[in-house]
Nucleic acid binder design. Structure first.
Lengths: 148, 148
DNA sequence: AGCGGATGTCATGCCATATATTACAACTAT
DNA sequence: ATAGTTGTAATATATGGCATGACATCCGCT
């Protein structure tokens, strides 16, 4: 199992919006072309990002605008925004019917839950350390290398 | 997206095998009853655990035997054993066709890869800190509380 | 040797979810 | 008003997890 590509798509989209912000017509179709997915996917991802307050859009008129500077948008923000993992259950999917008549079955959940949450927290903390600014910078570096 | 319940099933199975080791007929059917899934699922999970050297089984005769003491079986071992996440791609699923003609599209992968791997590593390190012995101990505690 | 009880594994079906795609109403700017 | 765009619903397809039945293989025991 893997975390949905919606996450990497979202990072890509935000980076591209910033990178091409002075260009005409950075619309969902253009972005979809860069990402390599259907424009509707881009629009739904952008919807989620808007709901999360990461960017702003306007119906009818082309182009989204970031609501925060790049270095204040962390991977965690994006990851949460696009529902990369199930909100209720968390990162780990627990088997749903351990036998309550079995001493192990009726206690396994309690024994594992807190520890799994800790693992998840640790991963999420790592995501908080990375910002889109880091990515944008790396990409500019790579582009500079290309033309060298 | 979530990590397969095969993982929590595997932890449950190992714990149960140890807990009921002195009982008769701790076979896949019995374990399936405790976990609340089909016996075939238990058998495939056990197969993976055997391949990973975590336990030993014998065709025909009932019951699996752990190959290591509980405190030497980490969550990470189990997680890797049952293929909780895709081996090749890792925890994050990258969108597959970023546009090579777009400066952002052709560099986004490079810019994100190492960082995402770092996130994954950090999660896996957390998994290494937890052993089945921790779980078994917690469960025994809970059981003691029940009868108090 | 033969039998009963297991395991190991395959094949199939079902269901949930991710992504693709079409369609269209709502909206903006010119 | 018109062209261009967003927001979103509806539908289709593909993939993967889990359930389930079937069965060959194997072990222990009598």
């Amino acid at each position: 199992m893997q975390i949905t590509s919606r996450f990497t798509i979202a990072v890509h989209v935000i980076t591209a919006i910033e990178y091409f912000k002075d260009m005409d017509r950075v619309n969902s179709e253009f972005l979809a072309g860069s990402v390599g997915v259907n424009p509707v996917i881009v629009r739904t991802v952008i919807s989620k990002l808007r709901e999360a307050g990461i960017l702003k859009t306007q119906r009818g008129s082309s182009g989204a605008v970031l609501a925060k500077p790049l270095d204040q948008i962390t991977f965690y923000d994006v990851y949460k925004a696009v529902d990369s993992v199930d909100k209720e259950e968390g990162l780990f999917h627990f088997h749903e019917q351990p036998n309550p008549n079995c001493p192990v079955g009726r206690n396994i959940h309690k024994a594992m839950d807190e520890r799994l949450k800790e693992v998840q927290r640790s991963m999420e903390n790592e995501l908080k350390k990375i910002t889109i600014a880091d990515i944008a910078e790396d990409i500019r570096k790579e582009i500079r290398l290309e033309s060298a």
